[in-house]
Nucleic acid binder design. Structure first.
Lengths: 210, 210
DNA sequence: CTCTCTCTGATTGTCGCCAATCTTGTGCTA
DNA sequence: TAGCACAAGATTGGCGACAATCAGAGAGAG
């Protein structure tokens, strides 16, 4: 299935998200085609796709560079996430089955354990899992797509945030509140919990103007 | 400035949104390149962009076709619009200046006049203007981009909806409520008004299962 | 008569080349 | 010394040709 251009696309996206390509770094098509041993058109196609995903910036006849997401933009993005994740949480609360509720509670328990044992990386992974699972449970493909795109743009900021001391403890309670509301089948409360969580993220982002 | 590929892109997007290309219609690259007298790579690039905008669907080695947005998908999209437009309305209420408020009220007056005189097309245009202006006033570029993309996908449904008898009268009041809340500088009410309007749109969409 | 296999026509994916455009460094002039 | 015109290098944009892949028709076996 995976054509070559698809492989180049994935490799480049991964490289950007993992930080191998620094923000504002120029992405010269020839260099990339050599680096990934693919043709320049494949690279070109991948660059266009990445531009649409908001990971790179392209200017006419001037090439592409890794998009640097400013703190202000990260806040904007988080605001949109706030309302869309709120929607997903509400819909998830409406549709959740008992089995799925147990699964969510299980994730919550593991998150608590991770925070208790100071496993920041594990907590970060669980965090991502939880948000993804809620998106899936919501059955809202459109919202899911929007959130996926937005998340990719702010992985760097998210990571920095997760590393801030004391942050996991705060976010854990918010996550548990979301889980509880969804498992209770209460859309209103679930939406408010999700929004509250993202509001807290925004506050934390505003906090560090380093 | 406008390169050829950009021209092809705009022409194709316009063609799809204007209905010259029917939903599910196959879009063969060779045909398109001949029709727009452009090279196949330009067409190819445009197709990729349109796929990212959600207007066409592409399958590996199987070509592109105009994406048919089902009623269910239109409802999903409207749900996302509901929360994001709510965000924009709230932020617009926070930032609006007196001059801009007057401008909004002016649009409201023209909408009332259009409905009173049965000018459905004019009302539809004003509707679009209003939503766009609110997006601009919100200063939320991210939300604006999301909404722009979503709107393009459901122009057809929006148009059908606007044509439904009695619909403009209902939506007019909702629009006036949004305008009033924003001009009052009341974010909470503005968000609720915007959400109420979109909720009404969703209801109307659900109504016709023809 | 139906199922499967193969072959063919149509269409997309990839490649290398050339033209168009931008950036940068250089030299001339006031 | 500052400013401007110009040329050279680097990089992107566009094009045609070739290879890879898929859908469908048709032949053959059961």
């Amino acid at each position: 299935m995976s054509s070559d251009s698809g492989a180049v696309l994935d490799a480049m996206r991964d490289g950007i998200m993992r930080g191998e390509f620094v923000p504002d770094q120029r992405l010269v098509e020839t260099d990339l085609s050599e680096r990934f041993s693919a043709s320049r058109s494949s690279v070109r196609s991948a660059l266009q796709q990445l531009a649409n995903e908001g990971l790179v910036e392209r200017i006419q006849n001037r090439g592409a560079r890794v998009r640097a997401v400013s703190l202000a933009e990260a806040i904007e993005i988080s605001e949109v996430r706030m309302v869309v994740e709120g929607l997903c949480a509400a819909k998830a609360a409406e549709r959740v089955t008992p089995a799925e509720a147990d699964e969510l509670r299980e994730v919550g328990a593991r998150m608590s354990a991770a925070v208790a044992s100071g496993d920041v990386l594990g907590y970060s992974d669980l965090n991502r899992s939880l948000h993804r699972r809620i998106r899936e449970l919501s059955g809202q493909a459109t919202a899911g797509g929007v959130l996926e795109r937005l998340r990719a743009q702010i992985v760097r900021h998210q990571f920095r945030l997760a590393m801030q001391p004391g942050r996991p403890a705060v976010s854990l309670n918010e996550h548990l509140a979301i889980i509880h509301a969804i498992c209770s089948g209460d859309p209103e409360t679930a939406e408010q919990a999700a929004r509250g969580h993202l509001r807290s993220v925004i506050e934390a982002l505003r906090a560090y103007k380093d």
